Amino acid sequence: MSQTLVIYSTVDGQTKAICQKIKEINVQMGHDVTLVPLTEAKKMILNDFDKILIGASIRYGKHRAELYSFIDENYEVLASKVSGFFTVNVVARKPGKNTPETNPYMIKFLQLSSWRPRLLGVFAGKIDYPKYGFFDRFMIRFIMKVTKGPTDTKGTFEFTDWEQVNRFAEDFSKQ
């Protein structure tokens, strides 16, 4: 049984929900899984784990700066482990933008980071207009209008392909 650490960096919670599903599947497949936010992972001894998976969301076109700091500070350990990384973004709702090779945020991540995880994934996120404050609701609606996405600020729109998440979780379990 491997000791697996699943770390998430999320703004609105969809990345955490995806990580919880990945944890559930990996536990079913016989792994011991610890799920923590990035802030808690900074305090952990990463060498205690056999496998490490990081999931991170995008907001306004960027992963959070603390994600890159964490990777830089723990590069040697991450590089020595079975590892995976996935990004969650609404751009991935579009065909041709939903794979590690075609998603602009994964491409940018790989340009900015020297870490090369064994497994990469891209998942479409969720827009939850009622949950946002005025500024975020306005900005996300504007971005959706430009990119031909949903603009009804009373609505919640989930784009995550949960079957894709399940396949990724199973693939990570087998690493």
Score class of each variant (00 low, 15 high):
48 D>R: 09
55 G>R: 12
32 D>C: 02
62 K>S: 13
46 L>A: 05
66 E>A: 12
40 E>T: 10
44 M>P: 10
35 L>G: 02
46 L>M: 05
32 D>E: 12
48 D>M: 06
27 V>P: 03
46 L>T: 06
51 K>H: 01
46 L>S: 06
26 N>D: 14
46 L>K: 03
30 G>A: 05
28 Q>M: 12
28 Q>S: 14
63 H>Y: 13
42 K>P: 00
43 K>A: 13
40 E>C: 02
32 D>M: 04
34 T>L: 07
28 Q>L: 15
31 H>S: 06
62 K>R: 15
44 M>Y: 11
26 N>G: 11
32 D>N: 10
62 K>H: 14
63 H>D: 07
52 I>E: 02
41 A>N: 05
59 R>Q: 14
68 Y>W: 01
51 K>D: 05
59 R>P: 10
35 L>K: 00
68 Y>S: 12
31 H>K: 14
62 K>V: 12
30 G>C: 05
47 N>L: 05
63 H>T: 06
44 M>S: 06
27 V>M: 08
32 D>S: 12
66 E>N: 15
69 S>Y: 08
33 V>N: 03
65 A>C: 08
42 K>F: 00
38 L>H: 04
40 E>G: 01
40 E>N: 11
59 R>T: 10
59 R>L: 14
40 E>S: 14
54 I>N: 01
45 I>A: 08
68 Y>H: 15
42 K>T: 09
66 E>K: 14
59 R>A: 09
58 I>H: 07
50 D>R: 02
38 L>P: 03
61 G>F: 07
52 I>K: 00
27 V>W: 04
38 L>R: 04
61 G>S: 08
33 V>D: 01
36 V>D: 03
64 R>Y: 12
44 M>E: 13
41 A>H: 05
30 G>E: 08
38 L>I: 15
50 D>Y: 02
56 A>E: 05
33 V>P: 04
53 L>I: 08
36 V>R: 06
52 I>S: 01
60 Y>G: 04
66 E>M: 13
30 G>R: 07
43 K>D: 15
65 A>M: 13
61 G>E: 07
52 I>L: 00
60 Y>D: 05
64 R>H: 15
26 N>E: 13
62 K>L: 12
45 I>M: 03
41 A>M: 02
45 I>F: 03
59 R>V: 07
42 K>S: 07
35 L>C: 04
41 A>L: 03
60 Y>P: 05
50 D>H: 03
67 L>P: 03
54 I>F: 04
60 Y>N: 09
29 M>K: 13
37 P>L: 05
59 R>C: 06
56 A>W: 10
58 I>A: 08
35 L>V: 01
63 H>W: 08
61 G>K: 09
50 D>T: 02
37 P>R: 04
69 S>H: 14
41 A>D: 04
56 A>S: 15
51 K>I: 00
48 D>L: 11
68 Y>A: 07
52 I>D: 01
37 P>D: 10
59 R>I: 09
35 L>P: 01
37 P>G: 02
67 L>T: 11
27 V>I: 15
46 L>C: 05
57 S>K: 11
48 D>S: 12
49 F>I: 03
65 A>G: 14
44 M>G: 07
31 H>C: 00
40 E>A: 10
45 I>D: 12
69 S>T: 15
25 I>V: 15
